[in-house]
């Protein structure tokens, strides 16, 4: 994923898995991660398969991530904020699977 237009305004820095990611103001967390060429953003609770943002409009829930310690956030529905800490949501994060 690549930006096609001159960025507007100052970029916003978030952390994904402790690594800095440059985002544009108004980006959703999902868009920022895709633009940083992050391939997968969660693993599923059933098989552990990797998933990434799919619908970008809040319907599919495949972009669930942990934001500032809160799990189950829809990355496509949350706007980036300076210093936001984002982590992959691991499917078995709640210990439901052995």
């Amino acid at each position: 994923m690549q930006r096609c237009f001159t960025p507007q305004g100052r970029s916003v820095r978030i952390l994904f898995e402790d690594q800095p990611v440059e985002a544009q103001p108004g980006d959703s967390v999902a868009a920022a991660l895709l633009c940083a060429d992050v391939v997968w953003t969660r693993s599923t609770p059933v098989s552990g398969a990797h998933r990434a943002p799919f619908c970008m409009m809040g319907a599919c829930f495949d972009c669930l991530v942990e934001i500032d310690g809160v799990p189950n956030r829809q990355a496509c529905m949350v706007e980036v904020k300076e210093g936001m800490r984002v982590r992959r949501q691991q499917g078995d994060a709640f210990g439901e699977l052995s």
């Binding site: 994923m1 690549q2 930006r3 096609c4 237009f5 960025p7 544009q24 108004g26 980006d27 959703s28 868009a31 920022a32 895709l34 633009c35 970008m56 409009m57 496509c76």
Partner: peptide, 10 residues
Amino acid sequence: ILIKASGALP
């Protein structure tokens, strides 16, 4: 949506 909201394209 990526084009409209973030000006990004694959």
